[in-house]
Write a protein that binds this DNA or RNA. Sequence first.
DNA 1: ACCGTCTAGGTGACATGTCAACAACTGGGT
DNA 2: ACCCAGTTGTTGACATGTCACCTAGACGGT
Lengths: 160, 160
Amino acid sequence: MDEPRWLDERENRAWRGYRRMRRLLDLELARDLMQDAGLSEPDYDVLSDLSETPDQRLRLSELADRMLWSRSRLSHHLTRMQQRGLVTREECPSDGRGSIVALTPAGRQAIEAAAPGHVAAVRRHLIDLLTPEEVEALGALTHRVVNHLAGGQRPSPSEV
Amino acid sequence: MDEPRWLDERENRAWRGYRRMRRLLDLELARDLMQDAGLSEPDYDVLSDLSETPDQRLRLSELADRMLWSRSRLSHHLTRMQQRGLVTREECPSDGRGSIVALTPAGRQAIEAAAPGHVAAVRRHLIDLLTPEEVEALGALTHRVVNHLAGGQRPSPSEV
DNA sequence: ACCGTCTAGGTGACATGTCAACAACTGGGT
DNA sequence: ACCCAGTTGTTGACATGTCACCTAGACGGT
């Protein structure tokens, strides 16, 4: 094994900064979201993805793929959200194995109540702290990394 | 409540890209790390922080603060790592309540074996995909956000 | 129609993280 | 010397995520 190419000072700064930001931003956004909407981040993501869909409903596996979650994780999480009345499961007419996840009125209400505050928090703690050039750069760079990772032959969490 | 300022297209692209990258990068790095070193990311972080310290040992609360972990989480995790022989707990001479976490030889060996591959993975999936300007921008932007979040009166996870 | 194989989703056991409560100890004020 | 509020680290109960495995249904080849 050759001597590895360690990160230089600039690279290290970026890498550490990224990880620290990741952690702090997560804590902060999760805290805000829980306080003023009673939702966890995973809750919010599920509701958000469902609400963006024309019919407010999605096949479970379709939702799992969009979220980059395993089917198992999603199934467990849906069971909990279902018990809270935020979503329901319906039979899939075209596939007897399938299961369709649908937003309930309470779920719709929850995401609509939560969204403005959440977006405001994202602005306050991230977006509005950046220059337009930085927003642009962040968009470009993250998409490049995502394409690299998604394009590779890495199994998605549901295909393991 | 006024109509919130939703994210425009560019902002949305940055925000979604960030979250997607976050998730994919995490899966990939965790996978690699587990496969070729038998360590989880949290394991790696603990070992890494300890190994960077002059004496290979730290007060538990000091380590928790550096990692932005709650003391509880760290304590639980250390118990597991201790059972695997990667770290030990020592009494703190200056404070009877205190506990000092120290790297064992096996822990040192584990981090030294894991580090080259991990750094290579970070390069392969992130750093080497970016232009020098992007690395610089990522460093600058993340540090600004971190200062904003850490500077605010947000309680750290150990102070809740 | 009947296989054999694959896919969808669910389940239980277990690993990990969170939260509140606790005992042991510190350190300043009196 | 003594109190007492604050800090340190641990613990147990519980929430969440992961993994391996299972059943039911789909679907192509014969």
